[in-house]
Design a protein around this nucleic acid. Structure first.
Lengths: 118, 118
DNA sequence: GTGCTACATTGACAACCGTCGATGTTCACA
DNA sequence: TGTGAACATCGACGGTTGTCAATGTAGCAC
């Protein structure tokens, strides 16, 4: 309900107009929601730690059994966090025998990084 | 409880050892928590929209009255989201008369971007 | 088969988050 | 002084999240 742009109520102490054409460009809500999901997956120190370890593991990937103890969380909790990262598209999982390897998805990470360039 | 690294239980289908020295490097929890707070502030499409508009406003900053209607949320909700962005260090606010201008903090954004380089 | 290991899923709980209406506060102007 | 506008804060509500114990599932070894 801002009628400021059509009136002359700019304060005398500040001659510049209140509104430039700020919100004039279109904004893709679906795209923002997809980005937000990615950032939400990063919004937890435990998940940042897991991601850091998976990144450090390189192309071979990281075994879940090596992630549990350093994370300081229970096995179900780690499994939950890995699922969050997986559903956010930040990592992929691969089963080898009884073990599960997790790999980074660098393109997804790059996408989130690029969105911060604005 | 992974004793795999001290035993010889590697599956025969996969000769590579399960564990490289993955979690061996130190991990700064306080630093990760600080980063996580930044990403949490980005983990909402409404806040991404607000941030986008504030960015588009440039050096002059964006007036709150111009952010409410494009966001599609009520004035208290927008005020709440701006508070979240402020407390995450992503924006700063400045009062001019009855109006409030919000400015971007590019260094904080750069910090979050750099953390994704791993 | 039995038993063990690695990992995922379920269920429960407290804490947190997004949203809005109502109210408070500060400023400008008459 | 009074009125209105811009923005913040409060209170409440439903939904989501992080956590763990318990349980389920699948593979390996004997």
């Amino acid at each position: 309900m801002s009628t400021r742009s059509t009136t002359t109520r700019a304060p005398k102490v500040e001659p510049v107009a209140c509104c430039a054409t700020v919100g004039s460009t279109e904004f893709d809500v679906a795209d923002a929601t997809e980005l937000a999901k990615g950032y939400a997956a990063l919004a937890d120190p435990v998940r940042l730690h897991l991601l850091s370890m998976i990144t450090a593991a390189g192309a071979g990937g990281a075994c879940v059994c090596d992630l549990i103890e350093p994370s300081g969380r229970s096995q179900p909790t780690v499994s939950h966090h890995l699922k969050v990262l997986r559903e956010a598209g930040l990592v992929t999982s691969e089963k080898r025998g009884t073990w599960a390897w997790y790999h980074l998805v660098p393109t997804r990470l790059a996408q989130l990084r690029a969105a911060l360039d604005d």
